[in-house]
Design a protein around this nucleic acid. Sequence first.
DNA 1: GCACTACTGAAAATGGTTGTCGTTAGCAGT
DNA 2: ACTGCTAACGACAACCATTTTCAGTAGTGC
Lengths: 130, 130
Amino acid sequence: MSQTRRRTRQRDAVAALLQQREDFRTAQQIHADLREAGDDVGLTTVYRCLAAMTESGEVDILLGQDGEARYRACSTGHHHHLVCRSCGFTVEVTAAPVERWARRTAEEHGFSDVTHTVEIIGLCDTCATS
Amino acid sequence: MSQTRRRTRQRDAVAALLQQREDFRTAQQIHADLREAGDDVGLTTVYRCLAAMTESGEVDILLGQDGEARYRACSTGHHHHLVCRSCGFTVEVTAAPVERWARRTAEEHGFSDVTHTVEIIGLCDTCATS
DNA sequence: GCACTACTGAAAATGGTTGTCGTTAGCAGT
DNA sequence: ACTGCTAACGACAACCATTTTCAGTAGTGC
């Protein structure tokens, strides 16, 4: 019954890497980043850490159109993302009007227990000018 | 140079099936549906038809969190979806306030050439009561 | 009918992700 | 510190949706 979450070098490494990055990265990229930094962590473990951190709300997942999941350490509250399709640079945004619209629309059609996904994908300032 | 799109039994079968269904279905489901209906079409061909129809805007793709793509014949204009997470029943919705919000938010942060994804996922009337 | 080539589809390959399982190492409790 | 329990690790295999291959098939224009 004592589901104690243990602190390990690997978990710390993954968490630390995500903290110092502000873009969305794939599990494989994170794995490579860690290896490059000398913090060798098994790919399987990277996936497990990310899954655990996702469940506890520490990271957000974004499923790209190429079928690859991207991860990022985000603020804990409800928010959405404005993502650069070229470099992955991400801005967290809140969207009160969207929340209202989603709730009302769902109600109108008799839907309950609703969640929603809202992402804006574009080119950031730097990528557009280069 | 004569890139004529040929009309085949298989393409017709896939198109017809999608027309008479109003929910999002996976490629594998569509393949099974066709087989069951007696219209045997290779899985590879199903994928190819769906890709072609997606490109020409005849069908919309929805990438679920389980990493499976779902397809549906939709109206051609810009719209979003209200999807039942249990049965896949889908309502097309328009979202003028969301469009405005997305455009303004992107501008504020210097993003250009933006698109967005907006989906509402919930339980439809029938699934909620059963 | 004929030629041209897009289309088909079975089988194999791809590639991200998850399961397996023997080993390693936190974290009590002593 | 020492020990036992068991969560966590990680190399590897398995999984599974999707894509590629390639030889055979069948629309389409002439």
